[in-house]
Amino acid sequence: MKIVTMPRPSQRNNLDNSMIPAINIVFLLLIFFMLAGHIEAQDAQLQIPASSSDAELKTSEVEIRISASGDYTINGQPGHQDLQTMMGSLSPTPDTVVICHIHRDLPSSALDPVLQAVQQWGIKTLLIATEQR
């Protein structure tokens, strides 16, 4: 007598069934990370300082980014001229909101051109982007 072992059709189904709880958990984790986290460009050249401020970041007309090398961009435009001149070309008013992303390890003097420009144009609101501790 020749015995041929046939794969039991239910074996595959059993495997699938036992994996369903695992898949449920993986799906839950996936949904958690998709909803709770947000994807942000990580820039090693621009790590903003930490503070305990919990005010959400406003949107602003003028965004200045000063990276670890001291180079800055205004609204994405690399600064070739000095900051005052570049801000002047945006014709700011006292109500213009200026936000500054500055690398945390830069010396305080890196913030001077921003402060001087803000003073020169009489801008009332200067925001420093920080991350919550």
């Binding site: 005010a55 982007a129 920080t130 919550q132």
Partner: peptide, 11 residues
């Protein structure tokens, strides 16, 4: 994904 949100400090 990151969980830390960018905050602001008004000067």
């Amino acid at each position: 994904s990151t969980f830390s949100k960018t905050r602001q400090l008004e000067l």
